[in-house]
Simulated assay, not measured.
Amino acid sequence: MPSERWREQYETGLEPIDAQHRGLFEALDRLAGALGSAAEGRRDESRVDEELAFIVQHIIRHCQTEESLMKEMGFPGRLAHAEQHLELIHQARDLQYRRLKGQRVDLEVVAFLGAWLDHHICESDLAYVAYLKDHRSA
């Protein structure tokens, strides 16, 4: 079962952002647990749906938080960053839609979301955080 863990490299130094990122990784671990119990023949589909719904809502709130910070500080890459967020929200919502249609969601979903977050935090988020820190001190 994949495990999506918080890593020190994800630290931005902005506690609200770091707390939300940690919350996303914790939610992915809970989803992995709910999905992994299927291998033991005791998958709780309602728990899978609950964890997936929590992740989608957490992603939306988190993206709103980041985009508000970027707008407030005049981050020039804000629109491109927001497009990345929108792509993730659409993919997460699609997972929910597929579940509503009765399709199974497997552990690959956890791996995909974890890899997306890893790349996004390390590339995009750390870039805007550096900009914010530079402009807050200026």
Rank of each mutant, 00 (worst) to 15 (best):
L107D: 08
L52T: 11
V110T: 08
P76E: 06
H135Q: 15
L126W: 00
L95H: 11
R30Y: 07
A27H: 03
H119Q: 15
V56K: 11
G36K: 01
E108S: 07
G36R: 01
F75W: 02
D118E: 15
L88H: 14
Q9S: 14
Q64L: 12
A27Y: 06
E45G: 06
L100T: 04
E45S: 08
Q84R: 14
R136C: 04
E8S: 08
I60Y: 02
E83F: 04
H85D: 03
L24E: 01
Q96V: 12
F54Q: 01
W6Q: 06
L35R: 05
A19G: 07
C63E: 09
R98N: 08
E11P: 04
V109T: 14
L79Y: 09
Y128V: 10
L107M: 10
A92Q: 04
L28W: 04
R7I: 09
E8K: 06
E11K: 06
D44A: 08
E108C: 06
Q84W: 05
W6Y: 01
A80R: 11
A27Q: 03
E50T: 13
A38R: 08
Y128R: 00
E72Q: 15
L95P: 00
E108A: 09
E50G: 14
A127G: 08
E72P: 13
R7L: 13
E40M: 03
R22E: 05
V56T: 13
E123H: 13
Q57A: 15
R30G: 04
L107K: 03
R78Y: 06
A34C: 00
L14F: 11
D134V: 00
R43I: 07
C122R: 14
L132A: 05
Q84V: 05
L126K: 01
E8H: 05
R30W: 03
H58D: 10
A111T: 13
I89Q: 13
R98P: 08
E8C: 01
M73D: 09
R7K: 15
F54I: 13
M73R: 13
H85E: 01
D49V: 09
F25P: 05
A53P: 11
L132F: 01
E87P: 08
G36D: 05
Q64F: 15
G36Q: 00
I89K: 10
L52D: 00
P16S: 06
A27D: 04
Q91Y: 12
C63K: 07
E51C: 10
M1A: 09
H119E: 12
A92Y: 00
A138M: 13
K71D: 10
E4S: 15
A34F: 00
I60Q: 14
I89L: 13
D106M: 02
E83R: 10
E40H: 06
V56L: 11
K133H: 06
P76A: 08
V109M: 12
V129W: 00
A19H: 07
R43N: 07
A82K: 11
L117G: 06
D94Q: 12
G41N: 05
G33C: 04
I55V: 15
Q84M: 11
L107R: 01
G13M: 03
H81G: 02
R47L: 08
S37V: 05
K133Y: 00
T12K: 02
G77A: 03
F25I: 08
E51W: 02
L79P: 01
Q103R: 14
R93W: 01
R99S: 04
P2A: 09
T65Y: 12
